[in-house]
Structure formats: structure tokens, C-alpha cells
Computed example of a mutant assay.
Amino acid sequence: MTTDERLLDELADLALSIAREAGTLIAEHRAAGVEIAKTKSSATDIVTAADHASEDLIRERILAARPGDGVLGEEGSAVEGGTGVHWVVDPIDGTVNYAHGIPNYAVSIGVEVAGEPVVGVVLNPAQGLEYTAVRGRGAFRNGEPIRVADPVEVDQAVVGTGFNYRRDVREIQARTLAAMLPQVADIRRFGSCALDLCAVAEGSLDAYVEEGVGGAWDYTAGALIAVEAGAEVQVLTGVAGRILVTAAPSPSYPAFRDLLESCGFVG
């Protein structure tokens, strides 16, 4: 085993172990009752006490095991590292679902080495789902290999999406989705970018598009899982000037990208 392979094994094992511990923590907080800590971009863009507790735990566990690594977290972690290893963390992706008792939320941990994603873990404790990937080794759900759906024409595609918290962005999203809806089989909105990307990876969604995700913590882990399962993932700029995450099985992606262009998604 090469040094690089040993490093990947170490990072993958650590990421999964930490995600499981964070998943247990947020499940315990959920059972005890959700406390809204603050709002961010709007009254519906909430942060719970569990978001902060989960991110604190994840950051502490990473730095205890690998004190020279960098960490970026949605709730404020911004640790500069000197090892070339960088962790990208969403302590609860799908916080609104979490706060309302909808069991579609996840701990998302991505790891980059020299700027390239190499490990992804997306763990949904409410449904007992663990999605994992290591670069070049495929994607897995609860230890079993997963693959994207067989390619379909865009008019047969079930497409996942999400909505930004700002009203002006939502108005733009409403127009682009209205243009898309008659041209696809259907549209689904589940409330977690990371889990939507995993849905593409496992073949339960044919494609995914969302403008206005919060940052790299939303998509880094899920994007690697989707890519390792056979998807193409592109992070573009949307018509509202915000991050636009797009994904579909690689053979289907060019036609899906053309659809997005024609419906006005791409800036």
C-alpha cells in the first residue's frame, strides 16, 4: 500500500467515525427538542443549537486526530492548515427539515487533499443511511456499492431541486422551474443538497439542480459520492449570480445542461 493509499484510508475512516458521532449527537438533540439559536439570511434560514454542537464536535475531533489540517464549516469554523488536507463540514444539512421533524437531513463531511476532493461522507441518522466515497474507489450506501440510474431522455427525468431562503432569489427560481416543469417527468424538493446528490448517486433521482446553496459545505461530500457513482457534477454560476450545483448521470448530463441553459438557470 502506498503512502497516498494509507492517507486515504486514514481520512475515510476518520471522516466516517466522526460523522457517526455527530449523527448520534444531533439525534439526541432532536429527541430532546430543537432550540433555534438564530436566523441568517432570512427568518426561515435557521440555525439550531444542534448545528453548533455538531460542528464543534466535528472540528474538535478532526483537530485532535490531525492538528495540522484545515477545517471549513458552515457555522463558522475556519481553521487554516499546513498539511494540504482540508475538511469541508456541514454539521446538519437540511436544518429546516431537522427542526420540523422531517427525517431528511444529514451530517456532511468532505475531505480535500491539495484542493481535490478525495473523501465524502453523508450520514442521515434519522433514516440510518450512510453514503461514502473515496476517490477512485466507487460510492457506497451502508457499505453496498451504488450507481446512478440508467440514462433517460430529459422528458422522462425526475429532477431534484431546492430553494434559496431569500425572496428575490426564490422569485427567479420560480421562473426557471416553471420553464422546466413541462419538459421533464417531474420535480422533487427534499431539502438537503447533500442528500439530493446522494439520490442522484443511488439512482433515485435522474438529475439535480439548485441555485443558492450556502457554500462548499453543502455539496463537497455529496458531489464526490455522485461522481464516484457515475455522475457528472458541475458547480456553475446561476442566473441570480449564486452557486448553481448541477448533476446527472454522465451520459445524460449534456442534454440536462442544455435544458438548464434553455430554461434560464445558468448565468
Rank of each mutant, 00 (worst) to 15 (best):
D45V: 03
H100M: 10
V85E: 12
G115M: 08
E130P: 08
I146N: 07
E144D: 10
A53K: 13
A99R: 12
F140H: 08
D150W: 08
G115V: 11
R59V: 14
E144C: 03
E112V: 07
R61N: 03
R147V: 09
V118T: 05
L129R: 14
V148Y: 04
T83S: 15
V154R: 11
P145S: 01
A49T: 15
I92W: 06
A114N: 14
E35Y: 07
A106S: 15
V134D: 04
E55R: 15
A149Q: 08
P103M: 04
D93I: 10
I58Q: 08
N104V: 15
G120Q: 12
Y98E: 01
S42Q: 01
V88E: 10
V107K: 00
P67G: 09
H29C: 10
G115R: 03
V79C: 09
A65H: 06
G138E: 00
V122F: 00
G136I: 00
A78E: 14
A114H: 14
V107N: 00
G81K: 14
G128M: 11
A99M: 01
I58G: 03
V96Y: 12
L25D: 10
T24Q: 11
G115S: 09
N97R: 01
E35T: 12
D56H: 12
V154I: 14
D90R: 12
I146T: 04
G110V: 03
V118F: 00
I58N: 07
A99Q: 05
G110A: 07
D93Q: 06
V107G: 02
I62N: 13
Q127E: 15
N104Q: 11
D69K: 11
